[in-house]
Structures are given as structure tokens and as C-alpha cells.
Design a protein around this nucleic acid. Structure first.
Length: 563
RNA sequence: UGGGGCAUGGUGCAAUGGUAGCACACCAGACUUUGGAUCUGUGGAUCUUGGUUCGAAUCCAGGUGCCUCAGCCA
């Protein structure tokens, strides 16, 4: 039970509302929908909506449709349609059997609904310009004014709208508006636009339509037509609910219940498709799937397991309160998932050579190493040991601070699965002062790292045999922004002013143990003592590239920081 | 002096009139051939003021604060 994804079990106000609807008979079944606009890639914020939409359907034995809200051809593209499906499947969800649906499937029906409203005197063609419409709309505190075209006859409206549909008018020259109430305290009810003229090619309907329904005129009816019982959405649509209900009422359609919840916000990240697009188009990242991006494809490439993302969404819960989730929670779950599943391996990211002076030249020993201490079934592997090895520069200090349990002049350290070695000498670059090479002696009695005399050796470090090492590139990532909430930054600045220049660091001379020669793109490993890494698509035969998914918790770094 | 929402530790979510709990974060310790993992422990919250009640985070009234809406975007 606890190992299961129980997003379907945690209590929240939406689940309670649905239960009540079933109990009272308002609905006899549950159906939901996930309605992305194909104008960008899905991000972790969408994952929340997605898990709620699919999760609620699942929980009540219903289905969740995938329906693209493709009512604005100038912003949409098939590229995104395909990517969105891939991301949903990655998270492990299945949409309704009819396959992906599109609001554009309903263009003809929607058109007839508009005609119906015109006939009822509930819609009219307005010749006001966009600017004039805005002026006539009034303000938050003052009522709007009625358009001079508001009282056109049904016949004239029918004629004009049909001619709009026939493509007789220019873009921007006219719109179709609902005839509701220009004095409503809810601005969405002040005769909202239903149709506008757009002469662009639609990714599915091509050039068939010169007019396109607004989201507000399409969404509610699409839900209704599909028999969606519960339309779960962002708080932003709370004010639109009366409008959707008005359309359904006037049209005599099945009445979906809309329930709104707060969108996800996460520290140090931005979750706005518009802003993410700016990062991509502006070249601030390498693409939508850049591992620094909060997109699902970015996270996948970074090495985040889908299950960690699902658990994250489950853990943060659902409410109507504005929230700012700490990114550390996601990272914790990523570590937790990977800790169970990822094989351990040794990789030296910043190498420095160590020569074991008393180890026979030319000798190679195969040391046995455990693949995953959390999973005995993962077995063991052999790691070659020889006279020259690489260790991480961080694991040597000329002047070790107190409690530094690694290699230092005259000090002993254990090489994991290897031997206990002692530093006898080291060479520095006279120019830079950098440590170039370290000389150690080894204790032949300590094979495997065990000291038969029972002597205590506190530190254990990882290493790679120089002659057997695979050269690799490792890309280290950090948060994309330096500001905890890039959505709310000082006036006069934008989120782009807070991009973290150190969010990506490329290390090109990394040394990995030879077992990694068989790794495939997407494979995930723990480089012991460092973090979790995932093989990147940029890998070339014989020269792998690894992304650091997330570092291991580093309590030594914490100790050092305090000083 | 428009409408719609929301207020529980640092963060997020529970508790649905009966001992305010969980996760992450934080701090301290144990263990350790990963300074990982694991284990143990500490601290810390009901926006405010009244009211109802034996009893209020929960119900009522009034304040206060925060978010949000004026696209021919979704």
C-alpha cells in the first residue's frame, strides 16, 4: 500500500466533492479530461493538473480524455501535439479509448451552437474595433456600455455571422459576442467574444475555417459534448465558470461541474509556458528538453524517474491556497527513487592521478563490487585495480581541516573495494599551485578494504584505474534561477535577470569505471559518494555524456559551509 | 465605496465540534567499506477580535492580510 502510488487515495476537497456528487446522484459516473493547448511543452505544473485529471478518473473507475484546446491556430503546432502525448505516457497515464481528441473536432458543432444563440437573440455580431470593445467594457469598478451593434436584428446577425464564416471579412473587422450583461460585476459576463476572424492555417483543419471560437466558447461545450462530469482546472477559471454555465444553460446541454484548484509554483523555477518559450527562443537554454528546464522532457532527460514526479504531485496535495513548493521536496523524491533502483558505479569527475609506488607495475586485480546495497538482486561486478588510479581532487587536501576523513599527506584512506593507501608524497604545479599527482603506498594486507589488524580507517573514497578508465563528459546542473520566486522580482527587472550562470557546468575530463562501457542512453547510475547520473542523448560511441540528475546529500559540504 | 477566492510550524498538506498530525526542510545523536542510505531524538503552527459550546483550527459575526479578473490568449 505504501509503495503504491496512492494519489488516488489521499483525501482532498475535489475527491470529496466528487464523492458527494455520486452520493447525491448529481452524476452516475465520473469522467474528466486533460485539456492542454498544443503551443508548448508540458512542465511540472501541467503534471499536477494531469495527475489530478487522470487520477480522479482512475479513482472513480472513470476515464480521462486527452483533449487539445486548439482554438488558436496562430500559436499551435503538431510538434507540441506529439510531445504532449509522449510526456503523458511517460507519466504512465492512458487517455480515453477514442484516442486524443481536439476542440477542433467540434468546430462544426460549435458553429451551429453559435447560430442557435443568435437565433435566440443571445449573440450578436459586433463591428467595434478591439480597442473600442475594451473601452466599452468598463473597468473593475464601473459598468460597461452597450455596443451600438448590440441590438441588430436576428436576421442581420445571421447574415453577418454566416458571411464571417464564409471568409468575407478581414481579420479584426468583426466578432461574434454573447449578449449577456454589460453591467455585470463579473467582467467575463460583459458580452464576451465568442468568435473572431483569423485567417491562418490550422494544424488540423487547414484553411477550412476563417473564424475560430474563443476558448471560453469552446471549452465548456467540448466538456459537455464529451460527457465530462468533472472539469478540474486552474483557479484562473473560477470567474469564467458562470459564463460556461450560461452557455450550457442557453444551449440546453449536459451540465459539467467545474472545480478549480491552485496551480503549482515551485521555488527557483518558472512555470509559465510563455516564459519558458522565451528561455528557449532566447538561447538561454539548449531547448525545451534542456535538463535545467522544469519541463517533463527536461526532467526525463535529466534522469528524474517518472515515479518520483508522480509521488511529488501526490505529496504536495491539492487545495485552493496559493502555494510555493520547495524544490527540495522533488529532489528528495528523486533521490529516494533512484536510491532504490540505480546501480552504483565509480566515477571520478575532477581527476587527479595517484601512483601506488609499491604496487607491482603491470599488475591488475579484479575487485568485487556491490551493484546496489539496497537491492541484493542487482548482484556484483568486477572493477579493475592497478598501480595508477584517479581519485577526485576534492578527496585530497594538503592541509586537511579537522574531521576531514580523506587523503592527506601522511594519512591513510580506504579505496572503496580496493586497498588502504597512505599518502607519501605529492607534486604541485609550480605555476598554479595545483596538485598534479599524488604518491601513495598501499597495504597489501588490506585487499577489499578490510584491515586485518582491526585498525580504524575513517575515510573511504572512490577511484578508477587509469589504464581502464573511460573518458566521459559530465554535465552538472544547479537551479536555473538565483531568486526563490522568479515570478515576483524587483520592479524593473524580469525573470531573465535572475538566471543562474552556474546552472550548467560541463566537465570534460571525467574518468569512469569500465563497466559503464555498456551503458545506454537514459540509463541511470549512482556515482558513489557524488550523485545520480543519467546517460545523455549527446553521447557518442566510446565517449559517453552523463547528466547529473541530483547530487547525493553532502553532509561534509554542510559542515564546511558553516565555517 | 466592483467581483471572485484564500488564511494551520520555514514549506506543503491533514485533522470535517473532542489530545493539532504527516512529509520535506532545520538541529542533535547513533550506525557506516558511499560523509549516501538507514535509525533515534529536539524545536517550532491554527491571521485577529468577539460570540455559541462542557469543549472551536472546525460553527457564527466583525476586522486584517494575501491572491486574482478589465485578450479578438488559453
Amino acid at each position: 500500500m505504501t509503495t503504491d502510488l496512492h494519489s488516488t487515495e489521499s483525501s482532498n476537497f475535489i475527491r470529496e466533492a466528487i464523492e458527494e456528487d455520486l452520493r447525491t446522484g448529481r452524476f452516475a459516473y465520473v469522467q474528466t479530461r486533460f485539456p492542454p493547448e498544443p503551443n508548448g511543452y508540458l512542465h511540472i505544473g501541467h503534471a499536477k493538473a494531469l495527475c489530478i485529471d487522470f487520477g480522479m478518473a482512475e479513482a472513480f473507475g472513470g476515464v480521462c480524455n486527452l483533449r487539445y484546446d486548439d482554438t488558436n491556430p496562430v500559436k499551435e503546432d503538431v510538434e507540441f501535439v506529439d510531445a504532449i502525448q509522449e510526456d503523458i505516457q511517460w507519466l504512465g497515464y492512458k487517455w480515453g479509448k477514442q484516442g486524443p481528441l481536439y476542440a477542433s473536432d467540434y468546430f462544426e458543432q460549435l458553429y451551429h451552437m453559435a447560430l442557435q444563440l443568435i437565433l435566440k437573440g443571445k449573440a450578436y455580431v459586433d463591428d467595434l474595433t478591439a480597442d473600442e470593445i475594451r473601452e466599452y467594457r468598463g473597468t473593475l469598478t464601473e459598468p460597461g456600455r452597450e455596443s451600438p451593434f448590440r441590438n441588430r436584428s436576428v436576421e442581420e446577425n445571421m447574415d453577418l455571422f454566416k458571411r464571417m464564416r464564409a471568409g468575407e471579412f478581414d481579420e479584426g473587422s468583426r466578432v461574434l459576442r454573447a449578449r449577456i450583461d454589460m453591467a455585470s460585476s463579473n467582467i467575463n459576463m460583459r458580452d464576451p467574444t465568442m468568435y473572431r476572424i483569423i485567417k491562418a492555417t490550422h494544424h488540423r483543419t487547414g484553411a477550412e475555417w476563417p473564424i475560430y471560437p474563443m476558448y471560453d466558447f469552446a471549452h465548456g461545450q467540448s466538456d459537455s459534448v464529451e460527457g465530462v462530469t468533472h472539469s478540474l482546472c486552474d483557479l484562473a477559471y473560477e470567474d469564467h465558470r458562470p459564463l460556461y454555465e450560461w452557455f450550457l444553460e442557453e444551449l440546453g446541454l449536459f451540465k459539467t461541474r467545474q472545480i478549480e484548484f491552485a496551480r503549482l509554483n515551485m521555488t527557483y523555477t518558472i512555470l509559465s509556458k510563455r516564459f519558458l518559450k522565451q528561455l528557449v527562443d532566447g538561447g538561454h537554454v539548449r531547448g525545451w528538453d534542456d535538463p535545467r528546464m522544469p519541463t517533463l522532457c527536461g526532467m526525463r532527460r535529466r534522469g528524474y524517474p517518472a515515479k518520483a514526479v508522480r509521488r511529488f504531485i501526490d505529496t504536495i496535495g491539492v487545495a485552493k491556497k496559493e502555494n510555493l513548493i520547495e524544490i527540495e521536496l522533488l529532489e528528495h523524491l528523486v533521490r529516494d527513487e533512484l536510491n532504490q533502483s540505480a546501480d552504483r558505479v565509480m566515477g571520478v569527475i575532477n581527476p587527479v592521478k595517484v601512483t601506488i609506488t609499491n604496487y607491482p607495475e603491470g599488475q591488475v586485480e579484479e575487485m568485487e563490487a556491490i551493484n546496489n546495497p539496497e537491492d541484493a538482486s542487482a548482484g556484483t561486478r568486477k572493477v579493475p585495480f592497478s598501480r595508477e588510479i584517479y581519485i577526485d581532487v576534492d578527496d585530497f587536501r594538503e592541509e586537511p581541516p579537522p574531521k576531514y576523513f580523506r587523503l592527506a599527506p601522511g594519512k591513510e584512506v580506504r579505496l572503496r573495494y580496493g586497498y588502504i593507501i597512505k599518502c607519501v608524497d605529492y607534486m604541485k604545479d609550480p605555476q598554479s599551485g595545483e596538485v598534479m599527482e599524488i604518491h601513495c603506498s598501499y597495504d597489501p594486507e588490506t585487499r577489499g578494504g578490510y584491515a586485518p589488524d582491526g585498525r580504524k580507517v575513517q575515510g573511504t573514497i572512490h577511484w578508477v584505474s587509469a589504464a581502464h578508465a573511460i573518458d566521459a563528459e559530465v554535465r552538472m546542473y544547479d537551479r536555473l534561477f538565483t531568486e526563490i520566486n522568479p515570478n515576483k522580482v524587483e520592479e524593473g527587472t524580469t525573470f531573465k535577470d535572475y538566471l543562474n550562470p552556474d546552472a550548467l557546468k560541463v566537465l570534460k575530463d571525467c574518468k569512469l569505471e569500465p563497466s559503464l562501457a555498456d551503458a545506454q542512453v537514459g540509463d541511470k547510475f549512482q556515482f558513489e559518494r557524488k550523485g545520480f547520473y543519467c546517460m545523455d542523448v549527446d553521447s557518442k560511441p566510446g565517449h559517453p555524456v552523463f547528466n547529473q540528475t541530483v547530487s547525493l546529500r553532502d553532509s561534509w559540504a554542510k559542515i564546511e559551509q558553516k565555517k
